[in-house]
Lab assay of single mutants.
Amino acid sequence: DHWEIRVGDITIHLKDVDEEIIRWVEEALRNGDDLEEIKRWVEEVLR
């Protein structure tokens, strides 16, 4: 699977990601969370 999350001008590409993570990231972006923080979290989860 390949996911693209778009929020404003930001697009995040994710592969082999659980839908729950996608929802979490979308929510975090909508809440204005720091992008670097989100990326770190996702990388942590995917490890």
Score class of each variant (00 low, 15 high):
Glu36Phe: 05
Glu44Gly: 05
Leu14Cys: 06
Glu26Cys: 03
Leu46Ile: 10
Glu36Ala: 10
Lys39His: 08
Trp24Ala: 10
Arg6Ile: 14
Ile21Met: 11
Glu27Leu: 05
Glu43Ala: 01
Glu20Gln: 15
Glu4Val: 10
Val45Gln: 15
Arg23Met: 07
Glu26Pro: 00
Glu19Cys: 07
Glu26Lys: 03
Glu43His: 01
Glu37Gln: 14
Arg23Ala: 12
Val17Tyr: 12
Val17Phe: 10
Glu19Trp: 11
Trp41Lys: 14
Ile22Cys: 03
Leu46Asn: 03
Glu44Cys: 04
Arg47Trp: 00
Ile38Leu: 07
Ile21Asp: 01
Glu26Leu: 08
Asp9Thr: 06
Thr11Phe: 05
Glu37Met: 15
Lys15Leu: 11
Glu44Pro: 00
Gly32Cys: 09
Asp34Pro: 15
Glu36Met: 12
Glu44Tyr: 01
Glu43Gln: 02
Val7Tyr: 07
Glu4Ile: 07
Asp33Lys: 15
Leu46Thr: 06
Arg47Val: 12
Gly8Asn: 06
Arg40Ala: 09
Leu14Pro: 04
Ile22Thr: 07
Arg30Asp: 03
Trp24Arg: 06
Lys15Trp: 10
Glu37Cys: 06
Trp24Val: 06
Glu27Ile: 09
Ile5Pro: 02
Arg40Met: 03
Asp1Met: 06
Leu46Cys: 04
Glu37Gly: 11
Asp1Ala: 05
Glu44Ser: 03
Ile21Gln: 03
Val25Met: 06
Arg40Trp: 02
Thr11Ala: 08
Leu29Pro: 00
Gly8Ser: 06
Arg6Phe: 03
Ala28Asn: 04
Arg6Asn: 09
Ile38Cys: 03
Glu19Pro: 15
Val45Lys: 12
Glu36Thr: 11
Arg6Thr: 13
Val42Gly: 01
Arg30Lys: 15
Ile5Asn: 02
Glu19Phe: 09
His13Gly: 07
Asn31Phe: 07
Glu4Met: 02
Val42Asp: 00
Glu27Asp: 12
Arg47Ala: 13
Trp41Ala: 11
Gly8Pro: 01
Val45Ile: 13
His2Tyr: 13
Asp18Ile: 15
Trp41Ser: 08
Trp24His: 13
Glu27Asn: 10
Trp41Tyr: 15
Asp18Glu: 11
Arg23Pro: 01
Glu36Gln: 11
Glu20Cys: 00
Leu14Ala: 06
Lys15Gln: 10
Leu35Ala: 08
Trp24Cys: 08
Glu19Lys: 13
Leu14Arg: 05
Ile10Thr: 12
Glu44Ala: 09
Arg47Asp: 07
Arg40His: 07
Trp3Phe: 12
Val25Lys: 00
Leu29Ser: 01
Gly32Val: 12
Asp33Leu: 15
Asp34Met: 15
Glu20Ser: 15
Ile38Gln: 00
Asp33Ala: 15
Leu14Glu: 02
Glu20Met: 11
Thr11Gly: 04
Val7Asn: 02
Val17Pro: 11
Val45Glu: 13
